[in-house]
């Protein structure tokens, strides 16, 4: 039972055009943002399968970048996320692959992001209807369900490494 609430079905409130290729991807980006405690300065993003074929039409690239910049699914600035990366100083690169070797689903992405000394590698899958799942953090398998009503910061806190808190103490 991946879907746990009526709001997984009626919702999220989001900017279009696709709940799986836009909204669910914003959430994956936002999770990375929370893992790093802010926007990364560098991100290497791999889109697999359906994501790699149709990302332009669905704004999947804008959605992921928007999430990395800390936006939520209903943020109307997502449309301008590519332009906004300049202002936030986020450098990014997209790669496109056929099948995801880590998780069997057409809507998968792996993001390796760096903010100062902090580096995190996150694998996410967008299940449909705006619901997402993080299946990998730093090459370890995890199973974290992300619904847009969740408090991502609280969830990410459980998975942050000691390095994260060391870096926070040093004032990243």
């Amino acid at each position: 039972m991946e879907y746990q609430s009526c709001f997984d079905i009626i919702g999220p409130i989001m900017v279009g055009p696709s709940s799986s290729h836009t909204a669910g991807v914003v959430s994956i980006g936002k999770f990375v943002y929370e893992m790093l405690g802010g926007s990364p300065k560098k991100a290497d993003i791999t889109f697999y399968d359906s994501f790699s074929e149709t990302y332009q039409g669905h704004g999947t690239d804008k959605a992921l970048l928007g999430g990395l910049l800390g936006m939520n699914t209903d943020d109307t600035r997502i449309r301008y996320a590519v332009e906004l990366t300049n202002r936030y100083g986020l450098h990014y690169e997209f790669k496109f692959e056929n099948r995801c070797p880590y998780y069997d689903h057409p809507n998968t992405t792996v993001v390796r992001a760096r903010r100062a000394d902090l580096i995190v590698k996150v694998g996410g899958v967008s299940l449909g209807g705006g619901l997402s799942k993080i299946f990998m953090i730093d090459d370890e398998k995890v199973d974290i369900r992300l619904s847009t009503d969740d408090d991502f910061s609280k969830i990410a806190a459980k998975y942050r490494s000691n390095t994260f808190y060391e870096a926070m103490l040093e004032g990243v």
């Binding site: 079905i9 409130i13 989001m14 900017v15 279009g16 055009p17 696709s18 709940s19 909204a23 997502i78």
Partner: peptide, 21 residues
């Protein structure tokens, strides 16, 4: 059409099918 303009909609259950309900 609002969805295609990247306007705000509610996924029901998805954005691609957001018009019907």
């Amino acid at each position: 059409e609002t969805n295609a303009r990247m306007g705000v909609i509610v996924a029901t259950p998805t954005a691609g099918a957001a018009g019907i309900i």
